Structure formats: C-alpha cells, structure tokens
Simulated assay, not measured.
Amino acid sequence: MYLYHYFDKTIGPFVSLSDLPIDEAKSILDVIKVTKPNSQGAQRHDKYVEYRRNCENIIRSEFAKKGGVINRTSPHYMVIEHSPWLSTWFENSSFIKIPIEEFDIKTISFTYGDSMPTFSPTINDGKEYRKKLYTYDEILKIIEKYGLPQDWNDDGKYGAERYIEAHVWSDETINRYFS
C-alpha cells in the first residue's frame, strides 16, 4: 500500500495552509484565487480556513481518543493509493508516493473520504463511515468491506467520498524524504 501526496510543482510538496496563522492562510488563499483560478484551491469558500481548522480539531481529538501518536498541530495530508480526481486539483500537478511501511502507523489516522465532508454537519446520509476516524487496522477493515472510493466513485456520482484520506501526525518520514 502506498500513501500519495498531490501538490503543485511550482509550490512543492507538503506545504499547508494549516501550518500558517489564520490571517496569513486566508491571504495566501486569496492570492491562489487570483493567480491559479483553475486550481481546486481557487474554488474554496471564504470560511474554508476556519472550517479546515475546525475539522482538524475534530480529527486530532478523535485520534487522541484512539491512542494515536500526535506530533504535529495539523497533519500532513495524503491518500491511500492513486486518486485520478486529486491528480487534477493543481495547474502544475505532481505527486509523491511513499510506502506505508515507511511510516509509524501509530502516527496516521484515516477517514473514508475527505475529512471535511466526513465530519460535515450538513452530510447526514447514514453511511457507517460518516463522522468516523480510523486507525490503520480499522481502515483496512473498511477497505475490505467497501473497497477504495476512487475505484467506484472517482467522479463523485455516489457521494462525497472519492478517496481515503490519511492524516500523518508526524514529520519523521516526511523529513526523511524532503528535508
């Protein structure tokens, strides 16, 4: 199994608005809307940064309850296996894939689908993986039951889940690859 990280080649990998103060993150998002209008980031609504921070608070809290090891305030975002849809998010798209064996799995949490819709108060479709965070062993059971979302829902026709999001709560492996 590989974890993939998609990014804009002109910016580089593992650069996150969540690592910045809110005002600075909002300013950068405003610049992206003007300079990269065809990117997914340019489509973000005005409250995106606040919603993202709230979602990260939820997943951090849920992961702590499960005994996860958290060494960062916000996670590095990756996905399980290749997502054709995510590969279209950036004007100068690229990706990095790292074998999951390179990570301490106690530092990774997962959502079946993107964490924002997974924990959105407006999505109440009754799916068993909605509003849930998983450990590595738990997500393997969900994959066994439902498969990879990008295999059955890459176009989003059947709901918000298009990939499995991985939240890496440590810099250790990332720094080995990109320091």
Rank of each mutant, 00 (worst) to 15 (best):
S18A: 14
S18P: 01
L20V: 06
S27Q: 10
I28Q: 02
I28F: 08
I28S: 00
L29W: 07
L29K: 10
D30A: 15
V31R: 12
I32R: 08
I32Y: 09
K33M: 02
K33W: 00
V34M: 13
G41P: 01
A42T: 06
Q43N: 14
R44S: 08
Y48G: 02
Y48C: 05
E50R: 05
E50G: 09
R52G: 00
R53Q: 11
N54L: 12
N54T: 11
C55T: 15
C55Y: 06
E56W: 00
E56H: 11
E56D: 15
N57L: 12
I58D: 01
I58G: 02
I59W: 01
R60C: 00
R60G: 03
S61V: 09
E62T: 06
F63C: 04
F63I: 07
F63Y: 11
A64N: 10
K66Q: 13
G67M: 08
V69H: 08
I70K: 03
N71S: 06
T73D: 13
S74T: 14
P75L: 03
H76K: 02
H76E: 07
M78L: 15
I80V: 15
I80C: 03
I80E: 06
I80N: 02
E81A: 10
H82C: 07
W85F: 12
L86E: 07
L86A: 06
E91Y: 05
N92A: 06
N92L: 04
S93M: 01
S94K: 01
F95W: 13
K97Q: 14
I98S: 09
P99F: 08
P99Q: 08
I100V: 15
I100Q: 08
I100R: 02
F103L: 02
F103G: 03
F103N: 06
D104S: 14
T107Y: 04
F110R: 01
F110H: 06
F110Q: 02
Y112F: 15
D114H: 10
D114E: 12
D114P: 06
M116R: 11
M116P: 02
T118W: 04
S120C: 12
S120P: 07
P121V: 07
I123C: 08
D125G: 03
D125R: 10
G126S: 04
G126R: 06
G126T: 05
K127E: 12
K127Q: 12
K131H: 15
